[in-house]
Design a protein around this nucleic acid. Structure first.
Length: 656
RNA sequence: GCGCCCGUAGCUCAGUUGGAUAGAGCGUUUGACUACGAAUCAAAAGGCCGCACGUUCGAGUCGUGCCGGGCGCACCA
């Protein structure tokens, strides 16, 4: 809606600029004026034009303003400062259109679909060998909210959660269970309680086990080989462990409203020979070459630098070589990931089989399989036009190599569409480590933060944090309301999730979150519950209205005085205008990948609404026309805030 | 050694792709509940935007060089 108006304005101005000054721009970047009194859209283009046509910017802006005033939907255009071109929107028409478009927008999705093919978003990707921790929650929250935003804009999205079920991390836990504790699959399957927590401890102990003897350490590679080979007790145990923990992860993520469509597994990539296919492709297209001397002798490598192998010395060439196939013939992580990326982009020429994953979840989820499932027909997975990989920034180097691999294969365009959605890790403050009972070295105590380490068992487990948040919310709910226990519990849960997802999203991607319980458990100020509370208050107004048998306003029949009312009340108009900006904010963040922008937007809208709520007592308003206007605005804002909360990944509790 | 990221109020962070007087939250001080419930609101104090040059009509934002901190750079994943 706002988007359409902006585009129309842009098109018309581009024409004016071209006709008046003979200068062609590709696009115009509209900004927000610092104050609503100055207008809704600002353009500093006159400064640039001034230099090009050698005339004062003020004059140029004046001329463009007079052109713009003829555009439908623009109330007036004026010039501020030395040449800022400011546009004022027709408040009456705009509000009517906004009300209509919000009515039409189905929950969680706007009506106009964007063009472009299927987008694959891969996130979470936790090694299935231990419980999920706060770092994983950040990954999943970013990925899931990003998916919600893309779908809101009308994109077709497929969500994949990759399971490295045959990797070293699973092997380590299997060594711990089989060799360190001497357990059989039968015994392990009898384990009660939280299996992911149990393995968290086992994994933390395996390191010590390895350090005890060389013999112990040998079990690591033996176990890994057994798992890859398949058809033996160790492999069977590994599969059991990996899938039971994967299910625990899915349950944890379901608690915070995160869902997936498909679980691609490394075991299928191995057994269906994805790598062999990719290997031949890489060889055929000369993307990798064999080295017969030097330190990389016996390996197939990819050149990731600019050096030409024929013109530089062996030593210099080695600098730019990344090993893809080891001298023992096994493939590295990068090689496997290239194969997987090729499949995601529909370039491999092979496909998985699929089956429904049987898990304790309230939605269907598919998992890759070697054999076809006889039951339900699976959706058409893979061959995305664009792929986003939500992976922390420490893996940037490897992600770049994978993209370089796609380019080396000649898939330039696809390489551009294979995007590393990079973000910084969640670390622990030294104070937080102490709270958890970990003793730190003197050196670590001086650091601003300490890295989470699954290997050391150092970290805040996702479920523990959620439980703590829930308990705290429950106390708050009970102190405010006398409700049946079940209802209090449900509300507390909604608040806990709202707080957590907002907290994990509010930072920009390359800000390291130094985790602190006090901040994460906060429900006041810039938090998710603040926004939820604003909507609950708005909803209460309509609930009260319904109780008194008064009909809420029909958004399709807006009183003719609304425009005039909004012209008189700039502060209220500012709320309407901001509410309208939601789709634009979401569109921008699909470019910047900064979900924090959505958080800031929703928080500031909630802030404006809370002030509005404080200033205007709507239900006791005696001027019935004004009352209708205030109700209409309340309704618009609560609907946009509810959508924003949905995109953040949370919901609105019935009361707070 | 090379590459990437960060440095903004006492603390934790934003800053709309180079725009108008640098903003929030927490904390501190003061004030507002007999209203749609205060998980709220109002007000105050708090800034050489790490430092120095440069580009520009205009720099927290771009470039170069320092200073300080973090993360990568395996025949691990």
């Amino acid at each position: 809606m706002l988007l359409a108006l902006t585009r129309q304005l842009e098109k018309s101005l581009l024409k004016s600029i071209s006709e008046r000054y003979g200068i062609g721009y590709d696009s115009l970047n509209f900004a927000l004026p610092p104050k609503i009194e100055l207008g809704e859209l600002a353009l500093p283009i006159a400064f640039d034009l001034a230099r090009k046509v050698k005339r004062p910017p003020f004059e140029i802006a004046r001329e463009l303003a007079s052109d713009a005033e003829k555009i439908q939907g623009i109330w007036k255009a004026d010039v501020a400062g030395k040449g800022y071109l400011n546009f004022h929107i027709d408040r009456d028409a705009f509000t009517r259109q906004l009300a209509e478009s919000i009515e039409q927008q189905k929950f969680g999705r706007i009506s106009e679909p964007e063009d472009g093919g299927k987008i694959i978003v891969e996130h979470t990707n936790i090694n299935p060998n231990k419980a999920a921790h706060i770092g994983h929650l950040r990954n999943a929250s970013l990925g899931d909210s990003f998916v919600r935003c893309l779908r809101f804009l009308g994109h077709e999205v497929e969500v994949q959660n990759y399971l490295d079920n045959t990797g070293v991390q699973v092997a380590d836990v299997v060594v711990g269970l089989e060799r360190m504790l001497g357990k059989t699959l039968d015994e392990i399957s009898q384990t009660e309680g939280k299996f992911d927590y149990y393995c968290w401890d086992v994994y933390a102990q395996v390191n010590e086990f390895y350090q005890k003897s060389d013999e112990n350490r040998k079990w690591r590679s033996r176990t890994l080989q057994a798992i890859e080979a398949g058809d033996n007790n160790t492999a069977e145990l590994a599969q059991y462990v990996a899938m039971r923990i994967a299910e625990a992860h899915l349950e944890t993520m379901a608690r915070i409203n995160v869902r997936y469509d498909l679980l691609p597994r490394e075991s299928e990539i191995l057994h269906l020979k994805f790598w062999d296919k990719a290997y031949h492709l890489l060889q055929d297209r000369k993307a990798i070459y064999f080295v017969d001397r030097g330190k990389n002798s016996g390996c197939w490598v990819m050149n990731i630098g600019n050096s030409d192998e024929s013109s530089v010395s062996r030593e210099e060439a080695e600098e730019d070589e990344k090993i893809i196939v080891r001298s023992d013939g096994t493939v590295t992580y990068v090689g496997k990931d290239i194969a997987y990326q090729l499949w995601k982009l529909g370039l491999l020429g092979l496909d998985f089989q699929y089956k429904l994953f049987e898990a304790n979840l309230d939605y269907p989820i598919w998992v890759t399989s070697v054999k076809e499932d006889t039951g339900t027909v699976p959706p058409d997975f893979g061959h995305g036009e664009k792929v986003y990989n939500v992976i922390d920034s420490r893996q940037a180097y490897l992600q770049n190599i994978v993209v370089a691999g796609l380019k080396a294969l000649g898939f330039e365009a696809q390489a551009e569409n294979s995007i590393h959605f990079s973000y910084e890790m969640v670390a622990l403050t030294p104070a937080c480590c102490e709270e958890l009972g970990f003793s730190l070295s003197d050196q670590d105590k001086k650091r601003p933060y300490v890295e989470v380490s699954g290997r050391k068992g150092l970290g805040v487990k996702a479920d523990d944090l959620l439980d703590t948040l829930y308990q705290k919310a429950l106390i708050e709910v009970r102190s405010r309301h006398e409700l049946p226990e079940e209802e209090s519990a449900k509300i507390a849960h909604t608040i806990a999730v709202g707080a957590l997802r907002y907290f994990l999203l509010r930072f920009s991607r390359n800000t390291i979150i130094a985790f602190d319980f006090k901040e994460a458990l906060n429900f006041e100020g810039e938090t998710g519950p603040y926004i939820q509370y604003a909507v609950v208050r708005a909803n209460n107004i309509f609930n009260k209205l319904a109780e008194s048998a008064q009909a809420p306003p029909d958004l399709r029949e807006i009183d003719s005085g609304i425009g005039e009312f909004l012209i008189k009340n700039d502060d209220i108009w500012a709320i309407v205008y901001q509410a309208a900006r939601l789709p634009e904010v979401v569109r921008q963040l699909t470019q910047s990948l900064e979900l924090g922008q959505l958080c800031k937007f929703a928080f500031s809208l909630a802030q404006k609404f809370n002030l509005f709520y404080h200033r205007h007592h709507i239900l006791s308003e005696t001027d019935s026309r004004k009352k209708q206007h205030l109700l209409l605005i309340t309704d618009l804002v609560r609907k946009q805030l509810e959508t924003a909360l949905y995109l953040i990944g949370s919901e609105v509790p019935p009361r707070m």
